[in-house]
Design a protein around this nucleic acid. Structure first.
Lengths: 214, 214
DNA sequence: GATCTGAATATGTCTATACATAATTACAAA
DNA sequence: TTTGTAATTATGTATAGACATATTCAGATC
């Protein structure tokens, strides 16, 4: 007899992967499993709920629990903070502001991020000053806009999109790469409850890859 | 007084975002919150655990719960199944096998995926036949290798990596794009407990973007 | 001062029980 | 047949109480 919910989860996952519980198939209900495995229903619930969150199972009230047809496990990545990304590579992080101007309530920023003094990424950003007025006074030589915003402007929703783009003139100049070289470009917009907080285009130096954990 | 754990979660998130609980700060313990909010400790636990999983809080036994210093929310994406990706765009999915040969226990595949008859992605794949011997008999005109493997070869671990690369000769030919055009390339390897199951290089037609949900 | 030891404490988890909620099913009425 | 309604059922959630476990902290010992 298993004990903790993690053991129950392991056992359930084994049955899924061994096809004892085939894809699309209905599995025994919680009460039954609890009896079979010798634990409380709440424990089974905890285990199955976790598996459902990971995409292995699909659960519906009254209809029961079935094994997901295409076990789409979800890949996760954390919203990148460049400093951590660079330091995670064992390199020294630094950054430089290229330009900074305010126009129509928006702060327009251009900046460059370095890993061991080699250009790592170039950033073009707009910040909505009516959402984060303090941003106007931040010394961006001390802390990068990215970092300051992540720590000081919690957001509710956002979009995040990677694309492969040819290096623009801006990229070519600052990342020291060939014109139209294939670059990984990240676009991100974040919103508070009421309005857009910041929008960024971040172009990474050639060779950058986005790794996800499954 | 709040009721469900989701309400507790909402209230806690409000306090975090309003900086009533500042970043790095210790928050009241579960028992205290339960008393304050008029619910059982288990309910508070559920709410705070969920927030910790989302990266808002850091919890340690005895030490208590504190607000994460850099609230790195995690972005999620599901491991892409091309059919679903294409159909999600409201287009008709189809695919074609370009080549198929077996060499040294490995099945080498090249294939092409279409959205409404326009090339969507080109695939180069190796499958370890000693891990999934049935794969040798699958009619790949009926079901794509991707799809078959996802449904029939559950894996334990894997790597997934996106990069921007110049179109190779293979890409140029099959995706109908300019030579060395910037393409989004996905590399994925999946492993069973014991060995590599499959390795893929998937190059997407120009303009493809990877969107993540925050 | 340095190190070990045990008490204290916050989170982690399990249990039994109860009720809530969604969805299906069965059945009755139109 | 269609439509409305009530019973059924599996999951979802809340609760109190108990014990487990990891860490910290305060003393005691060296």
């Amino acid at each position: 007899m298993k004990r903790g919910w993690q053991d129950i989860q392991t056992e359930a996952l084994r049955r899924i992967q061994s096809r004892e519980w085939p894809p699309g198939g209905l599995i025994p209900n919680e009460a039954e499993l609890a009896r079979e495995l010798g634990c409380a229903r709440a424990t089974v619930n905890r285990a199955l709920r976790a598996l459902a969150e990971d995409g292995w199972l699909e659960r519906r009230r009254r209809a029961g629990t079935r094994v997901a047809l295409s076990p789409q496990r979800r890949a996760q990545m954390s919203v990148p903070i460049l400093r951590q990304e660079v330091e995670g590579l064992g390199k020294a992080y630094s950054h430089r502001v290229i330009s900074r101007k305010i126009k129509g309530g928006l702060l327009h920023l251009e900046g460059l991020h370095f890993a061991d003094k080699a250009p790592f990424a170039a950033e073009q950003r707009q910040v909505n000053l009516s959402e984060v007025p303090q941003m106007a006074d931040v010394d961006l030589d001390q802390i990068s806009a990215n970092e300051w915003l992540v720590q000081n402007a919690p957001f509710d929703r956002g979009t995040l999109e990677y694309a492969a783009e040819p290096a623009s003139g801006f990229d070519t100049k600052h990342l020291e790469c060939a014109p139209a070289a294939p670059l990984m470009v990240l676009r991100r917009e974040t919103f508070s409850e009421t309005a857009m907080v910041t929008a960024v285009r971040m172009s990474y130096a050639p060779g950058h890859a986005v790794r996800l954990v499954i």
